[in-house]
């Protein structure tokens, strides 16, 4: 990406049009993981693809101003900590680590969005984490390639 800022106009336009729906679809997969096939892992991958599409289309320099790879680390840690905290609350409330304490207290109506207790929350945590991780993986590959091109070998 150093010589030309991003790809051609066609790719940029398509990316601009399609990235927000991809993101919403990722949210949908993540939030309805307890009702339909899906969940945090696929949802997070879809999120990350939305971001990566933008980065690939618009080129590293321009996209990183909006989506700094260092910022992704924050979401990464945040998602993981959220998962762990849900587990710890379960151990405080119900006596067992990762106990589904919301389901025990407030069982929602089955087949509705607000049901299954902690599961949607954990899905959100995993979605955040996986998205941030995948984004950083691709960015790490890109940055590594750039470093290799600048500094020759190694």
């Amino acid at each position: 990406m150093p010589e030309k800022e991003g790809m051609s106009l066609i790719v940029k336009e398509v990316a601009r049009l399609i990235a927000p729906p991809i993101f919403i679809f990722g949210l949908y997969l993540t939030l309805t993981g307890h009702l339909t096939p899906g969940g945090g892992f696929p949802g997070g991958v879809v999120f990350a693809c939305g971001f990566i599409l933008v980065v690939l289309a618009y080129g590293g320099k321009r996209a990183f101003r909006r989506l700094p790879p260092e910022g992704a680390s924050k979401y990464d840690s945040g998602g993981a900590l959220l998962f762990l905290v849900i587990g710890l609350i379960g151990s405080l409330v119900g006596g067992h680590f990762l106990y589904n304490f919301i389901q025990a207290a407030l069982p929602g109506t089955v087949f509705h969005l607000l049901s299954a207790g902690t599961m949607p929350l954990i899905n959100i945590a995993i979605g955040m984490k996986v998205a941030a991780c995948l984004f950083m993986v691709v960015m790490a590959l890109t940055l590594f390639r750039l470093a290799g091109e600048k500094g020759g070998e190694s």
Binding site: H34, G38, G39, A116, M119, N123
Partner: peptide
């Protein structure tokens, strides 16, 4: 037992 419609998610997350 878990109130999750998707059995996969019930196994994975509960």
């Amino acid at each position: 037992q878990t109130g999750a419609a998707s059995a996969i998610t019930a196994v994975l997350l509960d």
